[in-house]
Design a protein around this nucleic acid. Sequence first.
DNA 1: AATGAATGAGCCTTCATTCAT
DNA 2: CATGAATGAAGGCTCATTCAT
Lengths: 203, 203, 203, 203
Amino acid sequence: MDTRVQRQQAASDGRRALVLEAARAVFDELGIEGASIREIAKRAGYTPGAIYSYFESKEAIYGALLADSLERLNAAVAATGEGAASPGERLRAKAHGWYGFFAENPRDLDLGFYLVHGLQPRGLTSELNTRLNARLHDALAPCETALAEWGLSEEAARSENTALFAHGVGLLLLQHTGRIRMFGQQATPLFDHYIDGLLQRLK
Amino acid sequence: MDTRVQRQQAASDGRRALVLEAARAVFDELGIEGASIREIAKRAGYTPGAIYSYFESKEAIYGALLADSLERLNAAVAATGEGAASPGERLRAKAHGWYGFFAENPRDLDLGFYLVHGLQPRGLTSELNTRLNARLHDALAPCETALAEWGLSEEAARSENTALFAHGVGLLLLQHTGRIRMFGQQATPLFDHYIDGLLQRLK
Amino acid sequence: MDTRVQRQQAASDGRRALVLEAARAVFDELGIEGASIREIAKRAGYTPGAIYSYFESKEAIYGALLADSLERLNAAVAATGEGAASPGERLRAKAHGWYGFFAENPRDLDLGFYLVHGLQPRGLTSELNTRLNARLHDALAPCETALAEWGLSEEAARSENTALFAHGVGLLLLQHTGRIRMFGQQATPLFDHYIDGLLQRLK
Amino acid sequence: MDTRVQRQQAASDGRRALVLEAARAVFDELGIEGASIREIAKRAGYTPGAIYSYFESKEAIYGALLADSLERLNAAVAATGEGAASPGERLRAKAHGWYGFFAENPRDLDLGFYLVHGLQPRGLTSELNTRLNARLHDALAPCETALAEWGLSEEAARSENTALFAHGVGLLLLQHTGRIRMFGQQATPLFDHYIDGLLQRLK
DNA sequence: AATGAATGAGCCTTCATTCAT
DNA sequence: CATGAATGAAGGCTCATTCAT
């Protein structure tokens, strides 16, 4: 009996994941504006009403999408810099962890923007918001740790880490919007160059 | 006859500017999502249909708004650093020119994002896109010039200027989205700090 | 110029009245539950969106319908008892004014019930509610006046008028729901009988 | 075998009653509009589909609810006027039986209105309708009997009883809808006053 | 008897856009 | 140039009901 309940639960989870996957696909192709429940349902092979068995609102879907995105971000960061010997190497590796994730998955960057611009309270409960913030913080923490191990005070490490994140996000944005071509530059070398300068400066 | 045509043209331009002004006000208060032709028309003292005498579509309004935004950006940059003696001071002043503009007018930042994320081809013609790129370039050029005067090669100056822009944009974004509070930091001091480091590094 | 504006206004009013008429027809045939904007629009020869040019919400339509109903009620009462010589005759005539109106227009009775059961705040603003209450009061006031002229104190007149209204409404309801057949009775003779008793009692 | 079938039947009836109880609770709290099969099922500890094992449609639930309501009404009337010595006292007691029931359970009043206004044929079969009529008649019969015992002819007793019912219903309606406040009156004293007048008149 | 996933029809409402006047 | 009525498509969402399990 227990197994049957488990099987049902697993099946339900699978279908929910399927809807989420469809939502991600729609979001990818049509952008956040073009994404509609109707379209998501169509891609998932459902009628619109069925979606509400899995998510209580459209915004809740984006909330789930975002939560999932941050999990993958953390996984990407965790999978990085295993054998880094020095704090400097670790900093570089971990920074490239999050940077690379967003460079390769620009829609996850969009998702983050949408979080602030379009998500309604119903989808982004305060509790979820706190959890999402915490997960973003988790993803960036290894860099801060490395900076501290490099010898910076707690305060200085946090400050430099913020600047590092801002720098990376700015470059990612310039790249994502194509504006960086205007400067005849490429984002990743510039990011590396920033880390070089940072390590130099703190030596 | 000629003068009459001119008078008419001037009047028309004035009314177009009035619509644009209304659009900016609506956009400021309601954001890009909340803005509607109806609302813009109402604020401009028109009925919805009349708007189409001045703009061929809603997207075209945003295109014009963005063009105008870039003009104001250039004006803000131009109004800055008049008495700066050294290239270093000039760099700081000009950088604060564009940075301050966006810090004080976050909706202009939104506009820039919307340009890439949501604007339809109808609103952003290739010709307009080229013109906008050029004006953004104009606004950032003074910093590049200052960097060159400081002794950097043309290539290095462009590279550093790109990084400077990315850094500022990243900080503005973090501030605008409120995520910077998560780090317990403030954007403007960090921007200053970045310029300090830059000048130090290039000394 | 003035005439043109007037003509437009008149045309607009006419179309609004047309929508209202359609709404009344739908309400008559399908009842309050079955009435939908779609159906009302269809009957009026419009698409659903067009309805919102004339009424800001579905509830507002019912508000207007109700207001109109009360105007007709007042007209019916006013058209009654012109030549009534004695207060007693006047009482009977005025009472039959409102009673007859509802007996002949049972949907207007429904409308009154709906007012309390289904109307949302958006359609029934406090201001409208006050106005509607006042108009109902106006329709019943002549009876109260007649009772006072018959010699009752202000308080007694109000009390008897309330009871008279309740009696009539109860009878109308029993008739409208067909429950009165269960008793083998008819509403109007009973209403007359009540008035007889009332006049007898107060003689 | 027989006992087992009986046990099953009893269990089934019990569960049906449980669903009905849940329906009443939902209806009480959310009103007739706000009540949904989903909500009823939830309160009864079932899933929506299960409800259809006990009732063939939502309307059938309301039919059953109404039947039950009339049983409780009869119970309330029966529990009244045990020690009333005179026909007059008995009339007053029995009238307050049904009046008090509706005054204390306004939702049962709603149910009666809904029966006529909103109930679909599927829920109100002709056979059910006849049964409901009979039970309503039963609840009102004691008053008619008392009137006859007071000396009225059969016909007069029926006529006065109808008027009495109409009066009470009218007052209940005015009270339930809050319109009675408009007159600065209260329903129950007026009902008493009506009975006083009735007894006076017939003395 | 019960589940719960899914349907399908419907709901009110918004909005960019068009067009006769 | 301007109006304003009207469209048509779409939006998010609800819900009674069905049906395979």
